[in-house]
């Protein structure tokens, strides 16, 4: 719960300004559009069967299997760079024990790492990027994670939907900060996720899991709002 409160308070525009310039964002969007031509125009909902296809096209290994035991559920996925490991191709792992919508978001995030590699060329990169539930706040302090999350936000909230949801919430057009989501925006986001991704926070019967998904919802929605407010995309 504390994570959600912290995310609710954070200013996402500041994080974007600090880590991702307009040009970097555009280059990420156009790289993403090569994978998903409808990116930022239509909502992207990934089917499990598509993951292998996309990985094949990107020439990355895909490991999609459930990991439940011990701390397994806390792990959403990871991306292993080939240069720092014994791999000939990078590896994307996604934990399929999660809700299908969460699996899709994780895959999209890891693809984001793959696509953003060019943005960070020349910088020292970690050999592996791990995606743990409830670590969203730390993504705001890390350009590599933030870039990967941008792709998820654009996939889930294409521009027409983002404008509909967020233009209202910042009363009177765009604002220079993306801080507090209005109650109306939260309702619209919940409806969007329910209709588009069959995510319903009130019905799974797993309160702790729901809370981490809720943190994700706040994070990706605020990030999308930040992109719209700062870059008008």
């Amino acid at each position: 719960m504390r994570d959600i409160e912290r995310l609710m308070r954070r200013d996402y525009v500041r994080a974007l300004r600090r880590w991702l310039g307009y040009r970097e964002l555009r280059s990420l969007v156009s790289a993403g559009a090569k994978v998903w031509p409808q990116l930022n125009h239509e909502r992207i909902r990934l089917k499990r069967s598509e993951l292998a296809d996309i990985s094949g096209r990107l020439s990355v290994h895909l490991s999609a299997r459930p990991h439940r035991e011990a701390d397994g559920m806390a792990l959403r996925g990871f991306y292993v760079r080939k240069s720092e490991s014994a791999l000939k191709r990078p590896l994307i792992y996604v934990n399929t024990a999660h809700h299908p919508a969460a699996v899709g978001a994780t895959f999209c995030h890891e693809v984001g790492h793959h696509l953003a590699a060019r943005l960070f060329a020349g910088k020292k990169m970690e050999p592996v990027n791990f995606f743990y539930d409830a670590a969203y706040a730390t993504h705001l302090d890390d350009p590599v994670e933030l870039a990967a999350d941008v792709l998820v936000s654009l996939a889930a909230y294409p521009e027409p939907i983002a404008r509909r949801i967020f233009a209202k919430s910042c009363s009177g057009g765009l604002v220079a900060r993306a801080q507090h989501l209005s109650a109306e925006a939260v309702t619209q986001i919940c409806n969007h996720l329910k209709r588009g991704y069959r995510v319903d926070f009130t019905r799974s019967g797993q309160p702790r899991r729901d809370l981490t998904y809720l943190a994700g919802m706040v994070h990706f929605a605020k990030l999308r709002w930040g992109i719209l407010a700062e870059y008008d995309l």
């Binding site: 035991e69 791999l87 592996v128 409830a134």
Partner: peptide, 25 residues
Amino acid sequence: QVNMLGRVSSPRHFLFILNSIRQAV
């Protein structure tokens, strides 16, 4: 690096990650 993220409380978790990478190798 996984350890530094501070989210792991069981050594088995490390083995799961290791095996996923090894499978790809």
